[in-house]
Design a protein around this nucleic acid. Structure first.
Lengths: 341, 341
DNA sequence: GCGTTTCTTGGGAGCGCTCCCAAAAGTATT
DNA sequence: AATACTTTTGGGAGCGCTCCCAAGAAACGC
């Protein structure tokens, strides 16, 4: 199929080594020779065989985005599309290839882990939003696979890129407080995920800062799915909240539907804030006030961090990279001032 | 890091070749020897180096899902998430790896094509929804890269998996006709895509079957994006349609918003049908009547077809695989019988 | 028991590349 | 012009595997 180094070498009347030097931009090649070799390369349509190269360099220029079993049910969430877009874009820019590994529940986890991670194909991995009880990150640490986590992970050795979940949640709740709400409920994300914990934390901080007592009847844990939002509403309504902060837009949409069915109007009867700013957030009626996180950016930055880790000589100081990107409150139509009634 | 064949061989007091035979399930190994080798493999935690293997077999067990430049703007469409889910699932089942290649506009297309396709990493590719003027498929054909197209492609040599776009569109429009509508507009998909053409075709067929004249003022071409739905509505309203068939849910949502702004109610003033049945379709108010296509299935089947092509001995009869999966009408709340006014 | 066939095993060659070392060529220094 | 240094070039070795061939072991027939 494609010619080999040796063939190009013959064509240019030089040795294999010289062609290799030209291809790899090695400085010590006479300009004239370099010229001649390039001509031969172009003429023959030579493409280096990356597999052969990988065999000797031990580098493949492939990184993987791993989405763990525990969250594959959420995979259709636009969050992941945007994340993938950010990661691929950056991979492209750095001439890396991106492999996608969804650790679906069906497959035998262990088999899959072995096959994907010990295949020898991966230089490193980006791990998207694990739960704290997922063995994936511990396994990766144990096997010394270079990786970056999307989302905070409580271990000193883990590089991560996260968004300011605490701050974002705080902003959302402060917004509701500013509108006069005092009975503000929250549908938290899964507390097995740091994002779930952090957003709940932000909610609590905002209330405490204004000395509004925290009422456990106003806190329900969801799981970032739409039905869980609907279920949560029914648990919350008896506590008579005037506003709800849902820890994800998907859940907020579930809330919206459930409220509609219960005959309550948003925002007249109850205000609602989401989190994420997925495209649907602006499509629903009323358009959702939410906290925007730069998802595509996160993916992009995660890859950048990973590549910098990969390029580092491994011997030296093992600084852990931890980046937290800002969030932003997007005000739309789902909140109103509390009625003075 | 991982031990090599040779080391396992030493451990089991056999030769490299024998271990290779055991790993590859070659029959001619004495049961006792096989046993001993497996023990050595487990003991040493041996994992075959797939790169070395690929170098000699010329197979990588990697396939790529390529999403061409022309549609990367649509990438956040849940369509792609579902497609990816189907493809990865099937890859996993067959022990293949999946590479994701988004041909983003930013990168130099040619450079990228070369790097991705001539990297030597790919055994084959699944190409998602190209436009007809995209040079990707012609290039793949020219370079003899094994691939399967998602969506019909008018070339005898192209394997493809498609859904019954014509039939789906026909069903949608027939549904509207059954409700008494006669002035039915359509917002077509891009006519540079076969799905766009086919859905328009189905629309026309349904009308013709009922001898309803086709009025060009009731046909507008969109591009599968939400804003294009909104724009199209304004072009259509002067023609006074009582129903609109949008060739994608995303566009239908754009329509919904635009109608709302124009003070028209769905379905009382105007009925609306979409296509795709993305998750948002059921989230909007009113929930969208739409044509469901088995997106995940398509991805899964496409990979299966690709693998069967890869496993075929290339010499024999080059039958082209062409599969068309059925669509299904999902009736929700966005259509009503035409008012006798 | 011996030739013949079949099963099992070992080792050489080679996939296409990079890396290292040494030889050759070129340049500078005296 | 001879020495010392630097730059440029070629070729061997080897990455870890598979595949092929041949040799040795086992099984079979008469």
């Amino acid at each position: 199929m494609s010619p080999t180094l040796e063939e190009v070498a013959r064509l240019a009347s030089v040795s294999r080594s010289t062609v290799s030097r030209v291809i790899n931009d090695h400085p010590n090649v006479r300009a004239e020779t370099r010229e001649r070799v390039w001509k031969a390369i172009r003429q023959s349509g030579y493409q280096p065989n990356v597999v052969a190269r990988s065999l000797v360099t031990n580098r493949t220029q492939i990184i993987s985005v791993i989405i763990p079993e525990s969250v594959t049910t959420l995979f259709t969430d636009p969050f992941f599309s945007l994340l993938l877009r950010g990661t691929t874009e950056t991979c492209n820019a750095h001439q890396y290839h991106l492999m996608l590994s969804l650790f679906t529940a069906k497959a035998d986890r262990h088999e899959m882990y072995q096959r994907v991670l010990h295949s020898g194909y991966l230089d490193g991995a980006v791990v998207a939003s694990t739960t704290l009880d997922d063995p994936l990150i511990p396994d990766l640490l144990h096997d010394h696979v270079p990786f970056v986590s999307i989302g905070r992970y409580p271990d000193d050795r883990v590089h991560y890129v996260d968004v300011d979940n605490v701050g974002g949640a705080r902003m959302a709740v402060e917004h509701l407080i500013r509108l006069g709400h005092r009975r503000i409920a929250t549908i938290a994300g899964p507390l097995s995920m740091t994002s779930g914990q952090d957003r709940l934390n932000g909610y609590q901080q905002a209330l405490e800062a204004r000395r509004i007592p925290i009422d456990d009847a106003l806190i329900v844990e969801g799981d970032y799915t739409e039905p869980s939002g609907g279920v949560a509403v029914h648990q919350l309504l008896p506590a008579e909240p005037t506003a709800i902060f849902a820890a994800s837009d998907i859940m907020a949409i579930g809330v919206l539907k459930a409220l509609r069915e219960a005959g309550l109007r948003v925002p007249q009867d109850i205000s609602l804030v989401g989190f994420d700013d997925i495209p649907t957030a602006s499509a629903v009626e009323p358009a959702l006030t939410t906290v925007r996180q730069p998802i595509e950016r996160i993916g992009s930055v995660a890859v950048e961090v990973l590549l910098s880790v990969l390029e580092d000589t491994p011997s030296e100081n093992p600084t852990t990279h931890r980046l937290v990107l800002p969030t932003e409150l997007v005000i739309r139509a789902s909140c109103s001032a509390v009625s003075n009634g």
